[in-house]
C-alpha cells in the first residue's frame, strides 16, 4: 500500500539527496579501490557512468557524470588529465540519447553498450599510451594491463547495474502522477 502511495515533495527531496549521495559514494569507493591495490583492477567508473546515463534519462546529467567519472579514471590510472574525461562525457551523452530514443531500458542492452565502451576505451588507452610509443614489444602490457582490466570491468558491470537498479528502486522518484495525467489525457482524447 505504502509503495503505491504518491511521494510527497519532502520524500522526493530526501530521496533525491540520498540517491545522489549514494552515486557519489559508489564513485568514491570505486576510486579508492582502484588506487589502493597493486593488482589489475576493473575500470569501475565506466559502468558507473553508463548506469547513471541510463537511469537518469537526462543528456546533460549523463554528460556531467561521464565527465566526473572520466576524470576520476584519469587520476586513478595516472593518465593524461582529461583523456578519459572527454571520451566518457561524449559516450555518456550518446548512451543517454540512445536509451531515451532508440534502445529499450534493459540489462542486455546495458551490458552490450558497456562492453563495447570498455573495449573501445581499452584499445584507445593501449594505442595512445603504449603502442604509439613502442613501449610494448611482446603484448605483455596489452594482456596484463589492458585486457584483464577490460574483462574485469565487463564482469563487474552486471553488479553495478544491479546496484544502480536498487538505488533507483529505493530512492528514485516515482512517476505516478505523470501516469495519472497521461491516462487523463487518453480519456479526454
Amino acid at each position: 500500500m505504502k509503495k503505491n502511495r504518491p511521494q510527497t515533495l519532502k520524500e522526493k527531496r530526501r530521496n533525491l539527496i540520498i540517491k545522489w549521495l549514494l552515486y557519489l559514494l559508489v564513485m568514491a569507493a570505486s576510486f579508492l579501490f582502484m588506487t589502493v591495490f597493486d593488482i589489475a583492477v576493473p575500470l569501475f567508473h565506466i559502468p558507473i557512468a553508463i548506469c547513471i546515463a541510463i537511469y537518469e534519462k537526462n543528456e546533460l546529467t549523463a554528460a556531467f557524470m561521464g565527465l566526473l567519472c572520466g576524470l576520476l579514471t584519469d587520476v586513478a590510472c595516472g593518465k593524461l588529465f582529461g583523456f578519459n574525461g572527454f571520451m566518457l562525457t561524449v559516450v555518456c551523452m550518446f548512451v543517454s540519447l540512445l536509451f531515451l530514443y532508440v534502445l529499450r531500458h534493459n540489462t542486455v542492452n546495458y551490458f552490450i553498450v558497456n562492453a563495447a565502451t570498455t573495449v573501445v576505451f581499452g584499445l584507445l588507452d593501449y594505442l595512445f599510451f603504449y603502442a604509439m610509443w613502442g613501449s610494448d614489444i611482446n603484448g605483455r602490457i596489452f594482456v596484463f594491463n589492458i585486457l584483464i582490466p577490460m574483462l574485469l570491468t565487463i564482469v563487474v558491470s552486471p553488479l553495478m547495474w544491479l546496484l544502480f537498479k536498487a538505488i533507483h528502486h529505493y530512492f528514485g522518484i516515482r512517476k505516478e502522477h505523470f501516469m495519472a495525467e497521461q491516462s487523463e489525457d487518453i480519456v479526454r482524447e
Binding site: 588506487t35 589502493v36 597493486d38 583492477v41 586513478a76 590510472c77 595516472g78 605483455r140
Partner: peptide, 13 residues
C-alpha cells in the same frame, strides 16, 4: 598513499 591503477611499471603517489 596510492598506487597507479593498472600501471605496469609500479608508479605511485
Amino acid at each position: 598513499i596510492s598506487k597507479t591503477a593498472n600501471d605496469p611499471f609500479g608508479s605511485f603517489v
